[in-house]
Design a protein around this nucleic acid. Structure first.
Length: 813
DNA sequence: ACCGCCGGGTGCC
DNA sequence: ACCGCCGGGTGCC
């Protein structure tokens, strides 16, 4: 075993090349590398069409799901299918199963899909009336770098992807009646008497539109009736059942145009059967609800007493309304003689009774309370509300957030989103809002993505138009500069914004640049430390520097120093090549911090000096001071081999290696192996299982003297002819335990045994942890190799191999 | 499935 | 006939 970084002094800086200062674009390179190395989830928006393929759907007669001509279908892997673990299920928009992809094709697709090499879409262009099988046009989408792999993989199984020219991707403009979209946007509606504040013209228009959206019976956008069926013009899906109409929408007026007042007016004006909410003495009637949430949590339970509560008949739908700061607005905008039951559902003493909450006219809560309750016998989720209103609805933009999931779990007849900025960053933001409104079929992310998001991002005009139609249909948005009947919505004094550019003085600029560079260096260092630790996790958990808990604060300074020195000795002895997490090289002038982490003195000194206030340990974030760094007494530096009392444990990677070694030894007991790691301490860890299974081994690493290295290599080569030096041809199997940033580093390593004197086939095994920083390192390696290939027309490897082949043939070997 | 595939019945022209 | 051919039974994954 040997650690190549040290032993041969190869390319010691290769790991930090990505961030090196000499590149003009270092900042960009840094961010790219971080994104590439740290990203767990690839950006699916970057996908390109690899090609298309005509496939077959079989087993139609066993399922009820039907498709129309031109309809999009979903392809779902069924790894648990008892008849075929490669099964790919075909379903229509509503998720009804239509059939399966034919077995042989499914086998090829399963590989591509399971390895995330491509996403596959299906469209059925014809044969929809078939009884047994039907054709399906499959489109393969993915990231550019996977394109060839996918095409080859499919070709190997006899499926040729059609990559030619322009192909229909299935997006087209849905037929829509634009006139109907603007319905009621110009109409006006008077608010109910109980609304205490007179509405402005544009607010009456908004009220009219909101009432219409709640009372309408029109189909959602892109749906039309065709005979007995309801037909979706974008996906070509059709169904007997009328698609659920979206009773509600997005009120996206600018700040200050009175979204809250308009919503209060809606609550009071449009109760059941288009009648106003019964208020005042009307104690026995059903009460309505609107809901809203605020981003803020105000746990002020004393507010509860501010509202008169009366016991009400519990309605089938209760209702609640919004935000903390609108509590005043209710009082302000509701007539003084009107009693409205408004309950603020937050604070630890909140009343969790479903019956009580249902009896309220309005229940107001916060996103935080809602998500805290969700999945925990949440009374709010058990009530079928008349209306749910999300104030500042863009807060639930991220569909992965708990708050968003909690919001989607609410049951309601009518749903509203109030937001001045419904789309903050990208078209992606819209999905969560559509999902909340339950706008079919876009509430299912796949259909939203296929029909709208991907086409829009790829610049498809039809996709953009469909998006606009969709948004127009469910959104009312006016800005402060909008006009009604030629007049501005609101009259405000003039506002001017100007930008004045300011130059820093030379001295200021110098200080600024200094701070910027320091900041950049600090970030760079922390990123490297973080990546480094992830790489260690991939190999073995014990590689991570331990945060020592036994270095108590009660110890005297002398005791503490003694213990730290002991710890430092242990750490240095355990791997002989302890690496500094700052420079990633072997520790020079080792020092140990009070939190028991070891660094090079110059490295950690620099970290401390770049901190403005309190310097913190890059590994554990404990406070560190230059004066508290403990050095190793010089005379003990050469000591070796502290026996670690800690218990040995295995790791997945250790298991993988041992499995290979044992299998190979069974096949041929004369095989020798080379086991390579970037981490010398990992080699130390590997010694235990090797001994346990009776493998004899030698170790080679950077701390050894030249003499010792020669001895070790001779011992390893003993039974094999050939010279010494860097020759390790006795080994025919190379195990690379962890990837290096630079592929050349690995190549050099492999060449130590794949060279003159080698008589066996050389097999190299690289262990890469799935879904980890290691996979991303491999991607970076591949990119580097591609670069080399583009620049030279052949890879490093090829050139080397061919040179070796040349020599071999010259010497007639 | 107006197929392919399987397995039983059958067998000169 | 250890075949070929015929025609019935059958059928996703």
């Amino acid at each position: 075993m040997f650690s190549h970084r040290w032993r041969f002094g190869w390319d010691r800086v290769s790991e930090v090349d990505l961030f090196a200062d000499r590149h003009e674009t270092s900042a960009e390179t840094l961010s790219q590398a971080i994104r590439a190395a740290m990203s767990e989830e690839p950006d699916s928006d970057g996908s390109v069409l690899f090609g298309q393929l005509q496939g077959t759907v079989v087993g139609l007669r066993y399922y009820t799901g039907v498709v129309n001509q031109g309809e999009m279908v979903g392809l779902v892997r069924q790894p648990q299918n008892p008849y075929d673990r490669n099964a790919v299920m075909v379903a229509n928009i509503y998720g009804n199963q239509v059939g399966h992809i034919k077995r042989e094709l499914a086998a090829a697709m399963a590989y591509v899909m399971d390895n995330n090499l491509a996403k596959v879409d299906g469209v059925v262009h014809w044969g929809t009336k078939n009884k047994f099988t039907m054709p399906v046009m499959l489109s393969f989408w993915g990231r550019e770098e996977n394109k060839n792999a996918v095409i080859e993989c499919m070709a190997r199984r006899g499926y040729k992807l059609n990559t030619a020219g322009s192909i229909s991707t299935g997006t087209h403009t849905g037929y829509t009646q634009l006139s109907s979209l603007n319905q009621h946007k110009d109409g006006e509606k008077e608010a109910a008497e109980s609304v205490g504040t007179p509405l402005l013209l544009h607010q009456k228009q908004a009220l009219s539109w909101m009432c219409a959206r709640e009372n309408q019976s029109a189909l959602p956008p892109f749906w039309e009736k065709r005979g007995e069926l309801y037909y979706n013009t974008l996906t070509c899906f059709s169904t007997k059942d009328i698609p659920e109409r979206v009773r509600g929408g997005i009120l996206a007026d600018d700040m200050g145009l009175g979204k809250t007042l308009t919503t209060i007016a809606l609550i009071l004006t449009n109760f059941h059967n288009r009648k106003p909410l019964p208020v005042e003495k009307c104690v026995t009637t059903c009460r309505e609800t609107a809901y809203c949430y605020s981003k803020e949590l105000h746990c002020n339970t004393s507010f509860n007493g501010a509202f008169p509560f009366s016991s009400q008949h519990v309605s089938a739908f209760s209702s609640s309304f919004l935000c903390v700061y609108t509590q005043d607005q209710f009082e302000q905008h509701v007539c003084a003689n009107v009693k409205l039951n408004v309950y603020l559902y937050y604070g630890s003493e909140r009343n969790r009774s479903k019956k009580f909450l249902s009896s309220q006219d309005v229940v107001i809560t916060t996103y935080n309370v809602l998500s805290a309750d969700f999945g925990n016998k949440s009374p709010l989720h058990g009530i079928n509300w008349l209306r749910v209103v999300l104030d500042e609805g863009h807060i639930i933009r991220n569909p992965n957030a708990q708050m968003s999931k909690a919001v989607l779990g609410l049951k309601a007849q009518r749903r509203w989103i109030l937001s001045g900025t419904p789309i903050q960053n990208s078209v992606k933001d819209l999905w969560m809002l559509l999902a909340f409104l339950r706008l079919k079929p876009f509430d299912v992310r796949e259909w939203w993505y296929r029909v709208i998001q991907r086409p829009v991002i790829q610049g498809d005009r039809a996709g953009l138009q469909n998006l606009q139609t969709l948004v127009k249909c469910i959104t009312l948005r006016r800005t402060k500069s909008s006009e009604v009947n030629g007049r501005p919505l609101v009259s405000l004094p003039e506002k001017t914004v100007c930008v004045e550019q300011v130059e820093l003085s030379q001295a200021e600029r110098e200080e600024y640049e200094l701070a910027r560079n320091e900041g950049r260096n600090t970030i760079r260092r922390y990123v490297l430390v973080c990546l480094y630790m992830l790489r260690q996790h991939c190999c073995h958990p014990d590689l991570l520097a331990k945060i020592s808990s036994d270095l108590g604060a009660t110890a005297t300074p002398a005791e503490l120093r003694e213990r730290l020195i002991e710890k430092l000795r242990l750490v240095l002895a355990s791997g002989s090549d302890e690496e500094c997490s700052v420079c990633l090289d072997s520790v020079r002038l080792p020092v140990i911090t009070h939190c028991a982490h070891v660094y090079c003195r110059p490295c950690i000194a620099q970290v401390i000096s770049t901190e403005q206030n309190v310097a913190r340990c890059p590994l554990c974030r404990s406070e560190i001071k230059t004066s508290e760094l403990v050095e190793f007494p010089q005379e003990e530096m050469e000591e070796e081999n502290g026996t670690s009392s800690e218990k040995w444990r295995t790791s997945s990677k250790v298991q993988a290696l041992m499995g290979n070694l044992l299998r190979l030894r069974c096949e041929d007991s004369s095989i020798k192996f080379l086991v390579v790691s970037q981490f010398t301490r990992f080699l130390t860890i590997l010694e235990a299982p090797l001994r346990e299974h009776g493998f004899s081994f030698v170790r080679l690493d950077g701390t050894m003297s030249q003499k010792r290295r020669t001895q070790v290599i001779q011992e390893f080569q003993s039974s094999t002819a050939g010279g010494v030096g860097l020759n390790l041809t006795a080994a025919s199997h190379v195990f690379l335990m962890d990837p290096a940033w630079n592929p050349a580093t690995e190549e050099q390593c492999i060449d130590r045994c794949h060279r003159l004197g080698q008589t066996r086939k050389v097999v190299v095994t690289k262990f890469i942890v799935k879904n980890s920083v290691e996979e991303n390192m491999v991607k970076i390696q591949r990119q580097k190799q591609d670069l080399v290939e583009k620049a030279f027309g052949s890879t490093n490897t090829d050139r080397k191999t061919s040179r070796i082949d040349d020599i071999k043939s010259l010497m007639e070997l």
